[in-house]
């Protein structure tokens, strides 16, 4: 009896300590704890429409209301995905696509960052670079394909070049724009403390442009995935884009849809990784909600 009461008391104390600890945490970071504590069930609302449509279509095909030859039911797509995964084909193709995007993204975003920083921070450089780059930007990137094939051959180099072009422009524009829009008032703080140009860039400009730089990189990455499809349409024997073309030529809509789903998953994962990697750098942001 006494024992149980004692344990009840200690239990109480523990829960009290816990709650005070929680209280302190809430004081320190009110928004994040609130978010963690209450799971927003409305997030699941987003799943309702696609799941309902998938189930309806599955039922329609099962009960013979539709043939499902050109629009395969979800079960057949999943079976196809599973099959591709089993044979290891899915991994080979996905890896190939990912590799192309990655190389193109690195080349495109690095040159975008360098040229964007130059044209954002120096008026002379802007007047020198920007008109040419803007003119090049007006060319639909796919129009480069024939030239790239002539110059770089039909293998990887031309594909990576196309992806790099696609990544370059949003990154260039985003970085240059971000630097141009840095608050003059914060730059003045740097002047008052007599920062050199390099110090000013490192201590004020760089952190100030980071949030927008992340957004620029994300849209660059998105375009990278867009252009990898185009690049793989140019003729490839591997890659998710090849699966698409192959599915069309062989009349296998389930393979096309499986490749599309793989693209979606891959793109979303890459984007999320970028967001997670950038999060510690832009934690300080004072925005109403997290950006898209």
């Amino acid at each position: 009896m006494t024992l149980s009461r004692e344990s009840a008391v200690t239990g109480n104390a523990v829960s009290q300590a816990w709650s005070s600890h929680e209280g302190a945490a809430a004081l320190a970071a009110p928004t994040s704890t609130e978010k963690r504590r209450v799971f927003d069930w409305r997030i699941l609302l987003g799943f309702f429409l696609p799941v309902a449509i998938a189930l309806l279509w599955e039922a329609a095909v099962t009960f013979g209301l539709a043939e499902g030859r050109l629009v395969p039911p979800p079960s057949r797509i999943i079976a196809m995905l599973w099959g591709l995964a089993q044979t290891g084909e899915l991994r080979t193709h996905a890896w190939m696509t990912l590799w192309r995007v990655l190389v193109g993204f690195v080349i495109g975003s690095l040159s975008g960052i360098v040229l964007g920083a130059l044209s954002g921070s120096s008026k002379t450089m802007r007047q020198l670079l920007d008109p040419t780059l803007q003119a090049l930007r007006a060319i639909p990137s796919i129009a480069w394909v024939p030239l790239f094939i002539l110059w770089l051959g039909i293998f990887e180099a031309s594909k990576v070049a196309l992806i790099a072009i696609g990544v370059f422009f949003p990154v260039y524009l985003g970085i240059a724009g971000a630097i141009l829009s840095v608050d003059r008032k914060l730059v003045e703080v740097g002047h008052v403390f007599r920062l050199s140009r390099v110090q000013l860039a490192r201590r004020i400009l760089l952190p100030a442009v980071l949030p927008e730089a992340v957004i620029a990189l994300r849209s660059g990455l998105g375009l990278g995935f867009m252009f990898v499809v185009a690049a793989e349409f140019m003729g490839a024997s591997e890659g998710l884009g090849y699966l698409l073309v192959d599915g069309q030529q062989m009349g296998k809509p389930d393979q096309i849809l499986a490749a599309i789903i793989a693209f979606a998953l891959l793109g979303k994962t890459a984007d999320s990784l970028l967001v997670v990697a950038a999060k510690p750098l832009v934690r300080w942001q004072d925005t109403v909600r997290e950006r898209l």
């Binding site: 008032k185 914060l186 003045e188 703080v189 004020i204 952190p207 100030a208 980071l210 300080w284 942001q285 004072d286």
Partner: peptide, 8 residues
């Protein structure tokens, strides 16, 4: 204005 650097 305070002009604090928001990332520090």
């Amino acid at each position: 204005e305070p002009r604090l650097l928001p990332w520090l």
